[in-house]
Computed example of a mutant assay.
Amino acid sequence: MKNFTLREANSLLPQIKLLVDEIKEKRKDLYIFLEKYEDELENRQDLLEMMYYKTQIEDLHKEINELIEIIESFGVMVKGIDPFLVDFPSEYQGRKILLCWKEGEEKIEYWHGLYDGFAGRRHVSEMKDKKNNVEI
């Protein structure tokens, strides 16, 4: 598995954001069809309509998963889709960490340990190369 520097991760982010924008559109449609499907399921009025919604949901789910696979092919990990979360494997002071990006953030500004998760995010400004006083 590739380890990303902060610079490498941020340079890959525009490509990931384009794919995430596409996923966001599909996610919005997915929620609409899920709501319609659940309404039909409750009312049990139109079986054909219900089948149509179910097919749309399955197709959107498949399309979203394909886009996620493309994102993960860059060597990153998708950790959530609402909001969209991406972790970039990295290393800091000899230990494995994850540079963390959340949908809506302009650039990667946070990181966390492998097992700390989103709640353990820390700002990248805390990551300094003590010898050269440079951000990693």
Rank of each mutant, 00 (worst) to 15 (best):
R122N: 12
D29E: 13
K96A: 14
E106M: 09
M50Y: 00
G75R: 07
I16F: 05
E126Q: 14
V86S: 03
E58G: 01
I23L: 06
W101E: 02
G120S: 10
D116I: 12
D59F: 04
L12E: 02
G117E: 05
G104N: 05
L60A: 03
Y92V: 01
V76M: 06
A9W: 11
K17L: 14
S73W: 10
K24M: 08
E72R: 12
E109C: 02
K131L: 15
K130L: 15
Y37L: 08
E40A: 10
R121N: 04
K128V: 07
E35C: 03
L41H: 08
E66L: 09
K107V: 08
L85W: 06
L85Y: 11
E105K: 09
D129E: 07
E91P: 00
K17F: 11
G117H: 09
D129M: 04
N65M: 13
Y52T: 12
L60N: 00
H123C: 04
E63D: 13
Q45S: 14
D116F: 11
E135L: 15
E8D: 10
L85R: 08
K28F: 11
S11H: 13
E38G: 00
R122Y: 05
E126C: 03
N10M: 08
Y92L: 01
Y115L: 11
K28D: 09
I97W: 14
E105F: 08
K54V: 06
K96Y: 05
R122C: 03
E22C: 05
Y115K: 15
K130R: 13
G120V: 14
R27Q: 13
K54G: 06
T55D: 14
K102M: 11
L6H: 08
E58M: 10
E40L: 04
L99P: 11
I57C: 04
D82C: 02
L34W: 11
S73K: 05
R121C: 02
E126W: 03
L67K: 13
S90M: 07
N65T: 07
N10P: 13
D21Y: 07
L67R: 12
K26R: 10
D39P: 02
E66S: 08
K28Q: 09
E8Q: 15
L48N: 04
D87P: 00
E69T: 06
Y31V: 03
F33Y: 14
M51Y: 06
K102N: 06
H112M: 12
N133M: 12
K28T: 10
E58D: 15
F88M: 08
L12P: 04
I97D: 13
V76Y: 05
E8I: 02
D59Q: 10
I57Q: 00
K17W: 10
M127C: 01
F84A: 02
E91R: 15
K54D: 08
F88Y: 11
L12I: 09
H123P: 07
E106Y: 06
E126H: 09
K24Y: 01
V86Q: 00
D129W: 02
Y110R: 12
Y115I: 11
K17T: 05
L114E: 15
K17D: 02
K26C: 03
Q45P: 00
M127D: 05
M127W: 05
H61S: 15
E58R: 13
N65K: 08
I23W: 03
L99M: 10
P14V: 14
